[in-house]
Design a protein around this nucleic acid. Structure first.
Lengths: 244, 244
DNA sequence: CGCCTGGTTGACTATGTTCAACCCTCGTGG
DNA sequence: CCACGAGGGTTGAACATAGTCAACCAGGCG
């Protein structure tokens, strides 16, 4: 892990290209550095108290929670533009860990300046809750899957979700053909299924010619039928709207 | 549903007694009324676009999501001090519905003034993300249960959670003996289990003399053993710290 | 009185887990 | 250059956990 500096947008999601010079100048004052983490290493630890939080510039990660006996639940996926570690600044410690799945670049902010940010830049503060509200919406999706979808629906819904997130975050150009650095174990832990059964559901979706996953790339072959398989009606629509 | 006015704390959780006159005067400017809803009726509808959001003054509710074929997932429980409907102000529509479980009193805020609030009162804005971060932490808990705990652990963890939330929100005096307006169906939909199996797990916990639920009251008879049954190690500790 | 809601229980079934192989690829060291 | 081992993926068979179906009970309300 090395620390250097660069342009660090606080709300990168859908704002990467639209940041004004003024915005950038603003962020310069608040960022304290740029953080690089390698694939497979933890970015933050569950239960940790950190003086920093981050914005993801590039790469992907998992938010994970552990049970005492080692059972792991992937609570959400992290894509460029997401916040990491804000909880440790607002609450006293992180309620989940974050593990890098690819090499990542993160922008570092210091906890002390959070309050300063609130006073001096309401627009930025607004972006922050927007991000928080979006994260909450995602967790709700995941919870609906884990609680009420059967195995096949879960993995179908999960793949659709990952495609959508990848596209929205510019991690991928399109949701139908995206880089896919995740292991089946990660999908299983996200869906709340065993590895073996997750594999079988993937086979089933592959046999039905709905998806293809190979060489680190996921392809959604038939989006409408995949949505049916996932019991989803929701249109992505224009979800976000960071004010200003 | 009727609308009247009263003292409307924006961050009521753990702040009910600590609001200054200044705080109250401030809130007066932003609230637009007080809302009363009866037990069993919806407060906000999933997918709705509302010009208002709320703070809960009294009563309890469920956040619910529905699948196309009617399967229901309870995504979280709402207690006094919680925010309701903020999503509809930040995103374009609500990602979940909210159903009152008891009669409720809510404080009404208008969406338009949200931005004004951010500019004029950073402290309040800070409270808002604090609340959002707390909600996210709760959803993570629920997701961990749904994904990785077995049936008995889930209902044990759920009851512990409800006790803790009830105490923290002053819905109850103590987490060990709290009013319990929820149906077994609500617990089942929160745990991601069938009604029948939820009932059997409750019987099991009752037979083990860990809990008692009767006459609208839940009693935790042996908290430490209940925590073991839930695979929980986490101490409640001092979680929150709304700045200022 | 009779229905409706919510809770309780048993028997049967099904979905998903566990266990145990086996396969392939890739990186490393003899 | 090949052998080896580790990580990830694939598959079948046995098993267990949780779901479904169906019935019954108790209290409350019209």
């Amino acid at each position: 892990m090395s620390i250097r500096c660069a342009k660090c947008p606080l709300r990168a999601r859908k704002a990467f290209k639209s940041l004004s010079d003024e915005d950038l100048a603003f962020m310069e004052r608040f960022k304290t550095g740029e953080l690089h983490v390698e694939a497979g290493t933890p970015v933050v630890i569950e239960g940790a108290k950190s003086p920093h939080f981050h914005t993801v510039l590039s790469g992907a990660a998992l938010r994970t929670k552990l049970l005492a006996d080692g059972r792991r639940q992937v609570v959400n996926f992290v894509f460029p533009g997401d916040l990491v570690g804000l909880q440790s600044s607002l609450l006293t410690e992180m309620a989940h860990g974050v593990e890098a799945v690819t090499d990542m670049r993160l922008c570092v902010f210091s906890r002390e300046r959070l309050w300063e940010l609130f006073r001096s830049s309401p627009a930025r503060a607004y972006d922050l809750i927007w991000l928080a509200a979006t994260e909450e919406r995602s967790l709700g999706e995941m919870l609906l899957s884990a609680g009420r979808r059967d195995a096949r629906e879960r993995v179908a819904a999960l793949l659709l979700y990952l495609g959508r997130r990848a596209e929205e975050s510019a991690f991928s150009d399109t949701r139908l053909e995206t880089p896919f650095p995740f292991r089946q174990q990660d999908l299983a832990d996200a869906a709340g299924l065993s590895l073996v059964h997750t594999n079988k559901m993937l086979q089933s979706l592959r046999a039905a010619r709905l998806i293809r996953i190979a060489d680190g790339t996921m392809t959604i072959l038939d989006e409408t039928r995949l949505k049916e398989a996932a019991m989803t009606d929701e249109e992505p629509g224009e979800q976000g709207r960071p004010l200003l």
